[in-house]
Each structure stands twice: as C-alpha cells, then as structure tokens.
Design a protein around this nucleic acid. Structure first.
Length: 299
DNA sequence: CTGACCCGCCTGGTTACATCA
DNA sequence: CATGATGTAACCAGGCGGGTC
C-alpha cells in the first residue's frame, strides 16, 4: 500500500506533495515507521509573505526513506499462516530461549521467579501473568529513563522485580510498540488536519489564480472596484491591505519530525527537545526509535 | 580484507488471556 | 451471567549489527 499525490500549481508557484506509504514491500520502511511524509513548498517572489517550507515525516524518516527499496514480505509477514503452525513449536523454542536467559541471568532470584512462573503451567496453555502495580510503576519509571535496556540493566531490573529477564524484555518491547502506535496516531491526526488545510489553501489559490487571469484579460476599467476574490494581488497593488489569515500549516511552525507525544501526559513535545541526542543507547539499539521521554520538553 | 556464521536485539504483527462495561 | 471491547503479556518471523573464525 503506497500512495503519493503531488499537486502542481505552477502558475501560482505552489507545489504540494503528500505521500502516504508504509508496508507494501518496503521492508525497512514498514519496519521503521508508517512512512508517512508530507512536504510542501511554494515558489513565490521572495518579498511575498507566503513563504512556507514545511516537511512532515515520521521521527525515523532517515532510515525509512533511505532503505525503502528493500524486497517485500518483511516485518509482520508471519501472519496467521505461520502462527497456526508455530503453536506446536512455540514451547520448544521458548524453552530454548528461557534456558539461555537463565544461563545469562546469574541471579538465583530470576531462576526462582522463573520456576515460580512455570509451576502451574501444564504445558498446553500459556498462563498470562498480570504485573502488579508496583512492578508496572517501576518498569514505567525505567522506560521513561531509557526506552531500551542493555543486558545488565535487564537482569538487574528483573531481579529487582522478581521477574524473568525475558519478561522485562518483552515488557519493554510491548511498551515501545504502544508508544510508537500512539505517536503514529498523533502524527496521522496532524497530517489529516494539515492535509485539510492544504486542500483549502489550494482551492483558495486556484480561485485567486482565476481572478488574476480574469483581471489580466479583462478590458481596462479604471473605475472598477477591486475584486474581493483576489485579495493578495490587489493588496500587492496597494488597494486592499487585508490578506487572508495564514493557513494551518503556517500556524503550526513545527516540523512534524520533531513532534512527539508523551503517552503519560498526552502532550506534544517541541522541536528543541527533540533536537537533543540520546546519549547512551544500548549497543544493538540502532533502529532509531525515538524516545519521547528522554527528549520531551512538554513534560 | 572478505565472507560465512552465530548471537543478541530489534521490529511489526499476531495470539491468548484478563478485565471491564 | 453472558458477551463484546479493550488492554496487554507472550509469541512469531524476519532483519540488522557486531563479533568471531
């Protein structure tokens, strides 16, 4: 699924581009975000008050756009087809992973917790653990500090929470996914509003262009009052000093790449906060996950 | 130096289960 | 009490980067 719409209005010097993409064979684009991009630029005379240059994209746009030519099928290619068959081997694989975790986790606490978690497991159905409020609160606190954990931190946190390291790992994975989902929802809403604004702006410019053409080819009539539908042109001639209000994309003044949502307080973080670099990420965390908590200035 | 292999971690997507209205 | 909606722990396949040989 990929869609790209580019609107050209050359006579007015306006170029609008909106591309919505995501999965559809671009494996990394699908894996590293929704691939939603919106760009807009105008080509107007420099003294013109309408000089917006807006680019909206997902936080990890560099990765998404740079590698969007990969072969298809990646990501959630698992689907239901494999899931059915994988049920029979899930236990085996999980056991292998847990064994590895157990070896890495030298603490007896983790082993004890693991044994306790599997005590009542009959092997046919997976028991769903419900984390306590205290466990969730501590996990949230750590997630706000860092959205990823290195192995040492993971084991230490698991020990502290009396959980298996694997459980801590899964919790962080799910937490990142939830954060990203909410961020995507926010971005989509923003893009929707922006698109509506641009559509309206496009209509207005089309009308203005028609008016200008009508004025150009109309016979000269010095007594004629200025047309209200071509305010900018007439204003440029010094006749009416009232330009229309700036469109939505100009009111925002924020590149979407720097907009982020803090799931805790549901507020957007500004560009200055997003400009900071996350200092000490774990070694393998090279997937450009944007952590709104370490960057956010909104909360 | 380069390629194959392994390992650990990541992601998006899915499933299963608990909880609640 | 039954049921659908929702949240989330647990899982999967596949990809990537780093280390080793």
């Amino acid at each position: 699924m990929a869609q790209e719409d580019v609107y050209h209005l050359d006579d007015a010097g306006l170029v609008l581009g909106l591309s919505l993409g995501g999965g559809g064979g671009a494996s990394d684009a699908a894996r590293h975000g929704t691939g939603i991009r919106l760009s807009m630029e105008t080509r107007l005379p420099s003294p013109c008050p309408l000089e917006p240059s807006l680019t909206l994209s997902m936080p990890d746009e560099a990765t998404a756009t740079a590698t969007a030519t990969g072969s298809g099928g990646g990501g959630g290619g698992g689907g239901t087809a494999h899931s059915v068959s994988s049920l029979s081997v899930a236990g085996v694989k999980r056991e292998r992973v847990d064994d590895a975790e157990g070896e890495r986790a030298s603490s007896t606490g983790a082993a004890a917790a693991r044994a306790g978690a599997e005590d009542d497991d009959d092997g046919s159905t997976r028991k769903k653990l419900r984390l306590t409020k205290e466990q969730s609160a501590l996990l949230e606190d750590r997630f706000k500090e860092h959205s990823t954990l290195n192995p040492k931190q993971k084991v230490a946190l698991a020990k502290q929470l009396n959980l298996r390291p694997r459980q801590v790992e899964v919790w962080f994975q799910n937490r990142r996914a939830r954060t990203k989902l909410r961020q995507t929802e926010v971005d989509c809403e923003l893009l929707k509003r922006c698109c509506e604004s641009l559509t309206e702006e496009n209509r207005r410019l089309q009308r203005e262009l028609q008016e200008l053409r009508a004025l150009k080819f109309a016979p000269p009539h010095p007594q004629a009052p200025p047309s209200s539908a071509a305010p900018q042109a007439v204003a440029a001639a010094g006749l009416v000093p009232a330009p229309p209000p700036p469109p939505f994309y100009m009111q925002m003044q924020l590149p979407a790449a720097t907009l982020s949502l803090c799931p805790s307080c549901e507020r957007l973080a500004g560009p200055a906060a997003a400009a900071k670099a996350e200092p000490d990420r774990p070694k393998a965390a090279t997937h450009h996950f944007f952590n709104p908590f370490t960057h956010s200035a909104a909360c």
